[in-house]
Design a binder for these strands. Structure first.
Lengths: 139, 139
DNA sequence: TTATGTGCAAAGGGTTTGCACTCCG
DNA sequence: CGGAGTGCAAACCCTTTGCACATAA
């Protein structure tokens, strides 16, 4: 979950609503699963869209930087992407079989606990990762 | 954090206390920082040890499988390794500057919360990742 | 027009693997 | 001796980048 701090920056690509960017956004908007860049690329191609893999990567990176999508790193080092429903800070309950994801709030007083533990050990500027992985009812 | 479920399996390498394996274990035992495989390899070489990078990877993988060390995936996809102090389940407070790490317990009733949220959405066999990243007092 | 975005293919960086050789047991 | 472990280099995979061409504004 990359910092998720960036806002209205304008580095990399994507400000211009190109055909490719819109198609990618549409696919992301239409799924509740975390998907890899390569999967998204395949989905687009399968849907008849013509788009380069590099373009998918560049747009995903830009969308992530602008906080439009969430990024998740899985065990094998692959990055998975998904459009956030809520703007606010949240966590995920992810199916390890199909990637289906539910956005959830953290446990009660989680932020407070995090701040306290960090302070106790002299750590500052803290961020955290908290995700739950399981097998959903469909599997 | 690979499943961390494996136990007394005996696939990959490392059961035999070879010179290389012992040297790697020694370095891991002597540091409280999460280190990448490449860093560990460099440390070993710098210490006058002769060891192949592949051997480092193979042993780290084996040690992780057997639960002897913790694995952490960072944002750029790199895997970091560290010898656990406690056998029990725990989380980490990691300095993003130097890798210095403190083992911490999860927030109160964290497991219960996780189980409840999972159950509510029909997920089973759940695991979770919960780590805090910050800057330690030395930086 | 013109900066921004795209495509392709090559380059990167971390990690894994095939195979012959070494060494522990 | 005999198989587990090692080293090296090639192979892999995901991701990024250089550069010429296309395109939204």
């Amino acid at each position: 979950m990359t910092g998720t701090l960036a806002q209205t920056q304008r580095p990399g690509p994507s400000r211009r609503p190109t055909r490719q960017r819109k198609a990618l956004a549409a696919v992301l908007a239409g799924t509740s699963e975390f998907r890899s860049a390569q999967e998204l690329h395949q989905l687009l191609c399968a849907a008849g869209q013509s788009i380069g893999l590099a373009t998918v990567y560049r747009n995903l990176q830009a969308m992530a930087t602008e906080g439009e999508i969430d990024v998740l790193r899985v065990d094998d080092g692959e990055a998975l992407y998904r459009a956030c429903r809520t703007e606010e800070h949240h966590h995920h309950l992810v199916c390890r079989e199909c990637g289906r994801t539910v956005e959830v709030e953290g446990p009660p007083a989680f932020e407070a606990w995090s701040d306290q533990v960090s302070a106790e050990h002299g750590f500052r500027d803290v961020t955290h990762t908290l995700e739950i992985f399981g097998t959903c009812s469909a599997h």
